[in-house]
Computed example of a mutant assay.
Amino acid sequence: MSRAAAPALRPFLPADTPMLAAIFAAAIEELTGDDYNESQQEAWAAIAVDEDAFGKKLASELTLIATVQSAPVGFASLRGKDHIDMLYVHPGAAGQGVASMLLDALEKLAGGRGAKSLTVDASDNAQGFFAKRGYVAKQRNSITINGEWLANTTMQKTLSSGGGQS
């Protein structure tokens, strides 16, 4: 009666940085090709090339790690009390509930910090995921990352007092 191990959550540790940088790059490379071209993907993934800076960014936010059998498979970070800064899942773990578990946890933590709503600047490939979870598109954005223009959409969800959808 063996089943795939359920993901678990734990806080970010500085030693996680190289693995999270690899998850970040793999997710961009393998999961965003329908929405972004190769130059855009390379510019976006290059954010994690400087692992020291990437680790400092993760440490400066509330960052949670999803693990399966103690190995990181995804991560998410909350900037301030009400903005999801990052949510990335390794392609090998995509579609297995990891992102949903991470998002549920961030919503509860944000609600616990007094946030009335959560915002996220969702990549084009992530919009459907957030929409299914009750996030509503508010505005389109064009941002420059390492000399490349990328589009995303600011989405917002109103939280109930328990951190869920109202």
Rank of each mutant, 00 (worst) to 15 (best):
S2F: 10
P11H: 08
F12W: 01
D16E: 10
T17A: 13
T17I: 04
M19D: 13
A21T: 12
A27F: 00
E30N: 10
L31R: 09
L31D: 06
L31F: 04
G33F: 04
Y36D: 05
N37Y: 11
E38S: 13
Q40E: 13
Q40C: 09
A46D: 09
A48R: 05
V49I: 11
E51Q: 15
E51H: 13
D52L: 14
L58H: 04
S60K: 11
S60T: 03
E61T: 08
L64S: 01
A66Q: 05
A66C: 01
A71P: 00
L78K: 07
R79D: 12
G80E: 03
G80S: 06
K81N: 07
D82P: 01
I84A: 03
M86L: 14
Y88P: 08
Y88R: 06
P91M: 09
A94N: 09
A99R: 01
S100W: 04
D104Y: 05
D104P: 01
A105K: 08
L106C: 09
L106K: 07
L109I: 14
S117Q: 12
K132Q: 13
R133W: 00
R140T: 14
N141T: 11
N141L: 15
S142A: 15
I145H: 09
N146I: 14
G147V: 00
N152H: 03
T153I: 13
T154E: 12
S161A: 14
Q165V: 15
S166Y: 07
